[in-house]
Design a protein around this nucleic acid. Sequence first.
DNA 1: ACGCTTTCCGGAAACGTTTTAGTATGGCAG
DNA 2: CTGCCATACTAAAACGTTTCCGGAAAGCGT
Lengths: 348, 348
Amino acid sequence: MPQMKGIRQLAKHLDISIGTVSRALNGRPDVNEETRKRVLAAAEELGYVANQSGRSLRQGTTNVIGLMIESSKETVENSDNFFLGVTGGLQSVLSRHKLDLLMLPCPNDEDPHEYLKRMVARRIVDAMIISATQRVDKRIDLLVKAKIPFVALGRSTSGGNHTWIDLDFEGVAACAVDRLVSKGHRRIAIAAPSNDINLGYIFVDAYRQSLERHGITYDPSLVIRVKSSEQGGYQAGHELLRLDSKPTAIILIYELMAIGLYRRLNEAGIVPGRDLAVIGFREEPRGKFLQPSLTCFRMSLRDLGVELAETLLATMPAYAEHYPKGARNTIWPLELAPGESDAFSLST
Amino acid sequence: MPQMKGIRQLAKHLDISIGTVSRALNGRPDVNEETRKRVLAAAEELGYVANQSGRSLRQGTTNVIGLMIESSKETVENSDNFFLGVTGGLQSVLSRHKLDLLMLPCPNDEDPHEYLKRMVARRIVDAMIISATQRVDKRIDLLVKAKIPFVALGRSTSGGNHTWIDLDFEGVAACAVDRLVSKGHRRIAIAAPSNDINLGYIFVDAYRQSLERHGITYDPSLVIRVKSSEQGGYQAGHELLRLDSKPTAIILIYELMAIGLYRRLNEAGIVPGRDLAVIGFREEPRGKFLQPSLTCFRMSLRDLGVELAETLLATMPAYAEHYPKGARNTIWPLELAPGESDAFSLST
DNA sequence: ACGCTTTCCGGAAACGTTTTAGTATGGCAG
DNA sequence: CTGCCATACTAAAACGTTTCCGGAAAGCGT
């Protein structure tokens, strides 16, 4: 049996109808257990696997979950192992339901909305996970209209109340501010991304609220808008040094900024952790490689992937029974990973 | 026109046959230019995109290229932005041919060979790029037998002479050894991965040959087999310190090892670049974040992606005409990125 | 007017699968 | 013996598209 042409060949080889073969393979009830065994054995022997095109054409389903990611220069530099780490957790859940994960990398010269539209129209996935959602994100309306179950990684105001999971920026900002204030700092700067990413707004808002909770008035001049890169960090250090009334602490939203900041501080003879308290955001993959080590926040990418998968399955009618999630929106916590960079204290 | 059910609706709306609509959309010659314009306009207006299942069922092609990656813990920690970086280059080429890229992440509890078999049987991709090839890799035989065009990222001895691209480990090893020898070093250690990955063997072989070219006899005790992780690097530092006749330089195959090595050296009061010369392998994303900065090697991930895509297209009959590549195997060069960690010199 | 080619389009088959409807068989109660 | 249900199967329709084949209309040289 060199060539497996399809289910027809398999049926002929077994001398039964193709309908029965199909039902046997798909675990349908109305097939003799004896027959099923024979079919399964023959399929295994001949290496038959159902053609996905024919299958999904007929039943309108693909058993594939899509994870849309962007490969822009900035994403590559800042997300790093993020997606790879998350996929581990995703798959550990999805594989239990015989679902496969496909990563859809949006070309960086193409509009993410157009890309997603094309992928959706192709009907290659049953459900989607989209990441890096913007404050207003057309992709969400698209998915809602196309009636494709999805979860957004990152909150958004688009498309009514869709399901999303986001990192606990408020918690992180509050924890960082609390920690710095408890060390006596009053003038705390923050380096935020200058682009339109949602994270920037939320983080700075939370930073502001945390300050005010401590009775510290929010000073807009301490919010330094720079690129989310090493250069941005350098620039942030530069801006910081030019302020009339210098802050004694700074919070960085991207840990990549830290390297640039350290460099600029070094040029000025300022030592992080001794002359200025520095707290970063995400640990991986570079936070702990700096000298002095960066105080920052940590989370389990794998666990986040598990949560994402379970949330997604809860939105898919065919699987929802196993995952009766109440909450449609989840705030994912991060844990403080203390380092040396915020050792500088004003308390006596 | 709320619901687009398919080409049939579109044809009815235009009052022409579905055959003509299909030919118009696919750019076939035998259709009036006037008609084609009308069809295109209507398709755009109604948001019609051909259902991929029906399409690929009929013509046995999907216009999708698969990139198989592994999301094992080790891959996540060491590959980092590697795949995301490469996809940028891949897509810049593929999109010119209206090909889409799909990343197939193999669950880390599943045998890569079984996973690939399933994906291939599904006929969801027209061609494949596989990565992290082993010395003997069953996936290659599988793809050859299934007659699926593919390129392996990493050389292998399986499956006759298939097409592959690999990093220039020989060049890197030679460059590192030459550089260290020129600074007077004679006892040069190497920290290599303890698992079966191809890279380990090739790299150490090249290291050995480079040494012998300089008339230095290869000393197996200087080859330290450790895990490709921070802990591995720490372990390597430990082993190094226990050697009777201590090396004056060390080459690290994974830059992630450097952080652990630095830590162990620091405990022993040894400063990299002053008391011991250290050279790492890949720069991104952590090499330059260390203090003192790590001398290591650098490459353009995007360019590598472009090369991969062009090589793959050359193996696909439908596209080969545009990419008449001669060489089926490519060694991808890396460039030295000097840092401070190998400043230690024995020359007078 | 005729035959020929070219241009354009409609009809229908085909891709591989799942699923619906229908059928033969046998058991069992009436 | 008849009617009825359960079981296990077959036959055929359906999914949406592309492509082969044939044919109508038009152009053109004779």
